[in-house]
């Protein structure tokens, strides 16, 4: 695959990535609404895909995009996700039209560019949720107890998004989010 990419003059990525799309059809089970769109493993194929899909800010409420390493499904229950967690960015409603698409694109670039250095292997993927009450973007990592790795990823992510020091982001373990009551999630780390 690497040779093929190079022969074609494309830039190979460290990982093959899978883009998923979720549309909330209440007449179906949750998993039936989650669809694999396609997979890619070069920079050029990423851009070809990105330029062909709808911007996140134009999706209907209840939709999600997810980008995960090949072999990892975008759900807590996946073996590679279940001990992990996520750095969560919650946006105000007005940010959908000003910053959402930029934040999501920067998130995707962090992933495919392996911008978390030696901790890039800890990254599983990223999810964007389009919701009426406020959109959310999250980077998912594989091991919530890996403080060093999780905080490095959070620090680099926050820097790449250009969030000011006054804006706090929190990391939640999936195990805690799955058992939470109401809308209060337990935050393991804050930056």
């Amino acid at each position: 695959e690497l040779l093929q990419a190079e022969v074609l003059g494309k830039h190979p990525l460290q990982n093959r990535w899978a883009l998923w799309f979720f549309k909330n059809d209440k007449s179906k089970m949750w998993q039936a609404n989650l669809r694999l769109v396609t997979k890619f493993s070069t920079v050029e194929d990423f851009w070809a895909l990105y330029s062909h899909i709808q911007l996140a800010s134009k999706l209907a409420a209840g939709c999600d995009y997810s980008l995960f390493k090949d072999g990892i499904e975008p759900m807590w229950e996946d073996n590679q996700n279940k001990r992990g967690g996520r750095w969560l960015i919650t946006l105000a409603r007005q940010q959908r039209h000003t910053e959402l698409d930029r934040f999501w694109l920067d998130t995707l670039l962090c992933l495919i560019g392996e911008m978390f250095d030696e901790y890039s292997d800890e990254v599983c993927g990223a999810v964007i949720n389009i919701r009426t009450k406020g959109d959310k973007i999250a980077i998912w990592t594989r091991e919530a107890e890996n403080r060093e790795g999780v905080t490095h990823i959070g620090r680099v992510y926050k820097e790449h998004l250009g969030l000011s020091q006054k804006v706090a982001i929190g990391y939640q373990a999936h195990a805690d989010t799955a058992t939470k009551s109401g809308c209060l999630g337990k935050t393991k780390f804050v930056l």
Partner: peptide
């Protein structure tokens, strides 16, 4: 040996023919 790309490089090639 890890394949890393920075943001500027990735954005620079967004509209190259092979990407469209």
């Amino acid at each position: 040996g890890k394949k890393q790309y920075d943001r500027e490089f990735l954005l620079d090639i967004q509209f190259m023919p092979a990407c469209i």
